[in-house]
């Protein structure tokens, strides 16, 4: 049945080469943990992406209940965690995944560094990777405020003060982030929400696409 549908579409659109390009590629022996167990270090990039997918999915579902508003943000988080079925699990996935994605990304960075994989011709991919690192930290920072509890509020206060310590333009960055010169409040929350769910993910997807296209173009770096 499925095969017939696939053949019907393939006959008209010739889709086989498309997914072959994406899915069918060589895994060299030195990166395959089945050959050398120590090669599991080559899995950290894939694991980072896997957790990123979980973050995107769970985040999409969380926005079904969450409201970015000072009156209702905390209440809606409380409601979705305690009143909605599996709310604890879905929010838990997003909460723990947020930390795990940073850990995995860091391990991936270490692997690339210690295997020297960033060297010519892969310098550009390292640079894009550093961009992804920055976007991920931004996602972590903006997401931290959204539950609108005490920890969120004061963590963001501190974070914004750190941003304000930048020479010359610090004050401008602070106002730009907080949406107000004095108050960390309603305007800050909506801004952080917009940055967290629209702007940074858009940048992240573009950078991830570049990251993956480059690795496919250049292949995995050779053994040590």
């Amino acid at each position: 049945m499925l095969n017939k549908i696939y053949d019907w579409v393939d006959e008209r659109l010739d889709i086989t080469p498309i997914w072959r390009d994406i899915a069918d590629h060589e895994v060299p022996e030195h990166v395959n943990p089945a050959h050398h167990f120590s090669a599991f270090v080559y899995c950290f990039g894939g694991l980072t992406f896997f957790i990123t997918v979980i973050q995107v999915l769970s985040g999409m579902f969380l926005t079904m209940y969450y409201v970015p508003d000072v009156e209702n943000a905390w209440k809606s988080v409380y409601y979705l965690q305690n009143e909605v079925a599996f709310g604890e699990i879905v929010r838990g996935m997003h909460h723990w995944g947020a930390s795990l994605v940073i850990v995995m990304m860091f391990l991936h960075t270490l692997r690339v560094f210690f295997t020297g994989s960033y060297k010519k011709p892969r310098e550009l991919n390292w640079i894009v990777g550093v961009g992804i690192f920055g976007v991920m930290l931004g996602l972590g920072f903006t997401g931290y405020l959204l539950p609108w509890d005490m920890k969120a509020l004061f963590a963001t206060k501190v974070g914004i003060e750190i941003a304000a310590s930048v020479p010359f333009i610090g004050e401008m960055i602070k106002v730009l982030l907080a949406g107000d010169a004095e108050i960390l409040g309603a305007a800050t929350l909506t801004r952080f929400f917009a940055i967290h769910v629209f702007f940074l993910p858009a940048v992240l997807f573009a950078l991830l696409a570049a990251h993956f296209i480059m690795i496919r173009r250049q292949g995995i770096s050779g053994p040590l």
Binding site: I54, L57, S58, F61, M64, L80, V84, A85, F86, G87, I89, V90, M93
Partner: peptide, 15 residues
Amino acid sequence: GMVLPMVRFAIDPVL
């Protein structure tokens, strides 16, 4: 196992 909790979470109002 990953998607099921999210789907159940989403359809909760119906149930």
